Simulated scan of single mutants.
Amino acid sequence: MATVRIGRTIGVEGESVEFVSLFRSHYPRTVAMLIAYYGFAPEIAEDAAAEAMTRLYLHWGKVKVPSAWVRTVALRVARELGKQQSLGLPDRELVNSGAADDLGRVELALMAGSAVAALPRRQREVMTLTLVDMTPSEIADVLGCSPEQARSNLAHARRTLRNAIQGEEGDGGPDTRRGKRA
């Protein structure tokens, strides 16, 4: 994981504290967004988020909406890094072996993943960003819509997922689905 040291006092008193606060809250979210929403490798996402935060630090005081600026710069940097690197398959396991011990959790995760993938594009985008702990206002900034639209899409996505997962849990197989006969 990339490490960024922040210690220099800059410009007007208090700006450094504001930057540290923004860094602590937005660095992990930016990394998560790049991985979950855009599909970048964790190494690229961490490097891109660190670079975006470094650039923000250098331009602190000039940037009007730092959280949106960081997301935009991080995405641009990640795309550039993605072009430059061909990472292939990761060297580490893709599945946490501890989670595999509990088959019920694994099955639920697979059902949820399949259900999310089956959602309409905008609902899938909103749900994915929600799962990386973004608020509807932050999601609206990323997707270029209003917070109300983000909330509405999230409500529809949750309803669809709830129905899909409840249907799968009650499903005894292809021949015993509700309303289906062998």
Rank of each mutant, 00 (worst) to 15 (best):
H26I: 14
V106W: 07
R124C: 03
T160Q: 09
G88V: 05
E15I: 15
D171P: 07
D101R: 15
R8W: 14
K64G: 06
S137G: 09
E13K: 09
D175L: 14
L110V: 01
S21T: 12
V65Y: 07
P90S: 11
G39E: 09
R76P: 08
K180Y: 13
Q85V: 07
E148D: 05
L108C: 00
V4L: 11
R122N: 01
R71K: 05
R121F: 09
D101I: 09
I165L: 08
E168A: 15
A45L: 05
G144P: 03
Y37T: 04
L103I: 08
E46K: 04
G172W: 04
F19Q: 00
S114I: 15
R181A: 09
R122F: 02
H26T: 12
A164K: 07
M134P: 06
G167I: 01
S97R: 04
F23C: 11
R71T: 10
F19K: 03
C145N: 14
M127A: 13
L58G: 13
G82D: 03
V17I: 13
P90V: 07
G88T: 06
R159A: 12
G11Q: 01
A50M: 06
I139E: 09
G39F: 10
R55E: 14
E43A: 07
I10V: 01
N96D: 10
R76M: 09
V126R: 01
R5N: 10
M1D: 02
E18S: 13
F40H: 02
P174G: 04
A2W: 12
G170I: 06
R162N: 01
D102H: 02
N163Q: 13
G14M: 03
V132Y: 01
E46P: 10
R29L: 08
T3P: 12
A112Q: 00
A52I: 04
S114F: 10
R122H: 00
S86R: 14
T30A: 10
R55Y: 11
T130Q: 04
L75F: 06
A45D: 03
L87C: 03
R105Y: 00
D101S: 11
A140E: 07
E13T: 04
V4S: 05
R124S: 00
E148W: 04
S21H: 12
A32Y: 03
M134V: 12
R92H: 13
T30V: 04
L110Q: 02
A155I: 14
E15L: 08
Y27T: 08
E18R: 15
C145G: 08
D47Y: 08
P147R: 11
M111W: 15
H59F: 10
A78E: 00
I10T: 05
M134H: 12
L131I: 08
R181M: 08
L56K: 03
F40G: 00
A155M: 08
S16P: 01
S67H: 15
T9R: 10
Q85H: 14
P28D: 06
D175G: 02
S16T: 00
H26Q: 06
A32Q: 13
E125R: 03
G144M: 02
A50F: 02
V65C: 05
R8C: 13
T3S: 04
R92S: 09
A36M: 07
G88K: 10
S25R: 14
T72N: 11
A157L: 10
A50T: 11
L56T: 03
D175M: 12
S137D: 10
F40D: 02
L110A: 04
R29T: 05
L89E: 11
P174E: 09
V132M: 03
L56S: 01
P120C: 00
F23A: 06
Q84D: 14
S86E: 10
L131G: 08
